[in-house]
Design a binder for these strands. Structure first.
Length: 570
RNA sequence: GUACCUGUAGCUCAGCGGAUAGAGCAUUUGCCUACGGAGCAAAGGGCCGGGGGUUCGAAUCCCUCCAGGUACGCCA
């Protein structure tokens, strides 16, 4: 279906050109023409402020320009009327006949409603939730999962082929600690005397459960093993858990990328060599003096020779360690190698969702790519601000390591997958959101999720009832649709713009707000425009049923875009 | 201290340089013989953190100050 802002912009552009050709407007460069729905309904369905933008260049007053544009505007089937208004706005009103016809267009598109060709078969990758499987998904981390998956859905709607990727490292210290923690829990489960370490230990109860399972499966066969088999076991169990949790939210990753493969393939060493060849690597016990007075030599770190990345030369606050003094890499080096690998896979668009606590790290990766002569521009990093969990008005602190956490599973249990998705989606990623656990659990009418889903339920209810009465919407004459129904169709036709803007700016929260607006346009109509009442003439009823058929299509599409269910009844 | 993010209604938050700044919740007042009232109608509530600037036009862009969050490790 058409994206109306673009359609209108095209008209305005040719009108300006026509006016210039006719000598009624002077020659000037035409800037990008923006068309959008105005705030007030009286101001029309779509408005354009171009006349004011070009007034100076044209040397005319804006209203005069607007009038000339209107005069030369080509006709189009979707335009009902056009008007030049006071300061210099051009206000468009959609043709009512054309609007009515959109009911059929919407139904015809169905589940693919407003699938755009913005991505035109381009490939996009969205990486999200990447973290080592050391514990269950916490509520805090789930925000990135929902935003990531929602961005993927918006990109798919925009026409991209999307891959969802999860990057993890099962070879580092965290996983070593996890294995060792399970080993201790295992010995504990066997009744052996153990001491729970103060640090480098995962205290979560899930490891006690894993240990019990392991004893049940293997008895004391592993009593003399080191951390490794325990790490393998914990990793496998954790991934099963993580995937099961994600499945409840209808989130599925296409690729689980293991950092280890970058070592196996030699990519890590190659990356180091490339950085070295580019002159960005040196060996020292501490970073080079950069000339800044604050770069005072750290008092003897006692750490020995490390290998450093001269990232400060590219603008970083300081140089970073690539290889520790024991010769093993820090996360920075494989991270750079990983991104090289991503770039080599030739995606047209790369999106990476990171929590604010990792917000600084991506810059180091960008410096790494730059050092290798790669422009990091195709990589879009979305920094998600942290979620502050609030219960009873007080903040709830979470830490996987200390074993204090609210799991996403618990939250879904207490509310629903739909509620969790909506509440975490309906905020700009930049906002530091307070997640009120009391409110989320409430399931009352304070919750917008039900308001939106109820619109779909009401449509479904109409057709259940209609089927019972033996009436249907076949062969409807849409001229019976009134002003109220057209109000909804106008709003529904904005969905395409929402998808375009959300996908282009990677701002999926827009669809959540749109969904609520759409529902708030719908509900009064549902109240007012009866389809099955005995007073309603059959041909009018048929047309209204057709309208509700289209409304249901739109709500189903919107809910699906948000990864939510479209219930038939509640 | 440096970098990033935030500051808009009592609360939680939208607002992609345009017209009189919006929504939900909460508060107050009306609507239930109809497709599920988890609904509808209406009201009150705002120096858009402060101050400068750019612009025909600023909540939006720039500078600065104030307040809060996060990160600044040879952890990831």
């Amino acid at each position: 279906m058409k994206l109306l802002p673009h359609e209108h912009a095209r008209l305005v552009e040719s009108a300006i050109q026509a006016a210039q050709a006719a000598g009624e407007l002077p020659a000037f460069a035409i800037p990008a023409i923006e068309i959008r729905p105005p705030k007030k309904a009286e101001q029309g369905d779509y408005a354009c402020a171009i006349a004011m933008q070009v007034a100076k260049a044209a040397g005319l007053n804006p209203y005069e320009i607007a009038e000339k544009i209107v005069k030369h505007l080509p006709t189009a089937e979707f335009v009902g009327s056009v008007e030049a208004i006071k300061p210099g706005f051009i206000n468009f009103r959609l043709s009512e006949d054309w609007l009515r016809a959109q009911v059929e267009a919407i139904i015809a598109e169905g589940e693919a409603l407003y699938t755009l060709d913005l991505g035109k078969g381009k490939r996009a990758q969205v990486e999200f939730l990447s973290a080592n499987p050391t514990g269950p998904i916490t509520v805090g981390r789930s925000r990135g999962a929902i935003v990531g998956d929602s961005i993927a859905r918006m990109l798919e709607a925009a026409g991209y082929t999307v891959e969802r990727e999860y990057y993890f490292n099962n070879a580092g210290k965290q996983m070593h600690d996890l294995g060792n923690s399970l080993r201790i829990r295992y010995l504990e489960a066997l009744g052996r005397p153990v001491e729970i370490p103060e640090s480098d230990f995962y205290k979560g109860e899930y490891l006690i459960d894993f240990a019990r399972d392991l004893v049940a499966e293997r008895g004391d066969a592993l009593a003399n093993e080191d951390w490794k088999p325990f790490k393998e076991y914990a990793e496998q169990k954790m991934f099963e858990w993580i995937k099961a949790t994600l499945k409840r939210l209808d989130i599925h990753h296409d690729v689980f990328f293991n950092e280890n493969s970058l070592y196996d393939s030699g990519a890590v060493n190659e990356t180091l060599a490339a950085l070295e060849a580019a002159g960005y690597v040196y060996r020292a016990t501490q970073p080079e003096a950069s000339g800044d007075e604050d770069n005072e030599p750290a008092e003897d770190s006692g750490k020995g020779m490390a290998t450093w990345f001269r990232s400060a030369r590219l603008g970083d606050a300081k140089d970073r360690v690539l290889l520790k003094s024991d010769g093993t890499p820090t996360y920075t080096l494989p991270d750079i190698a990983y991104h090289l690998n991503k770039f080599n896979r030739k995606f047209d668009l790369l999106v990476n969702i990171l929590g604010a606590d990792h917000g600084a790290q991506y810059k180091v990766v960008q410096y790494g790519l730059r050092a290798l002569g790669i422009d990091p521009a195709p990589l879009h990093v979305i920094i998600i601000q942290l979620v502050r969990m609030v219960r009873d008005g007080k903040e709830v602190k979470m830490s996987t390591r200390r074993g204090v956490y609210d799991t996403l599973d618990e939250l879904i249990d207490q509310t629903s997958a739909d509620v969790v998705r909506y509440m975490l989606l309906a905020r700009s990623p930049d906002s530091h959101l307070n997640f009120d656990l009391n409110l989320a659990v409430k399931q009352s009418n304070e919750n917008p999720v039900y308001y939106i889903q109820n619109a779909h339920v009401r449509c479904a209810g109409i057709f259940r009832e209609a089927a019972g009465r033996g009436t249907d919407d076949a062969g409807a004459d849409l001229s019976h649709l009134g002003e109220a129904e057209l109000r909804f169709i106008r709003k529904a036709l904005e969905l395409g713009d929402i998808i375009e803007v959300s996908a282009t700016n990677l701002e999926p929260h827009r669809i959540a707000f749109y969904a609520h607006e759409l529902a708030s346009v719908f509900h009064p109509i549902y109240d007012e425009v009866r389809a099955l009442h005995s007073d309603i003439a059959p041909e009018v009823a048929r047309a209204r049923l057709r309208f509700y058929r289209a409304a249901q299509v739109v709500f189903r599409r919107v809910l699906t875009l948000m990864g939510m269910s479209a219930p038939e009844r509640m």
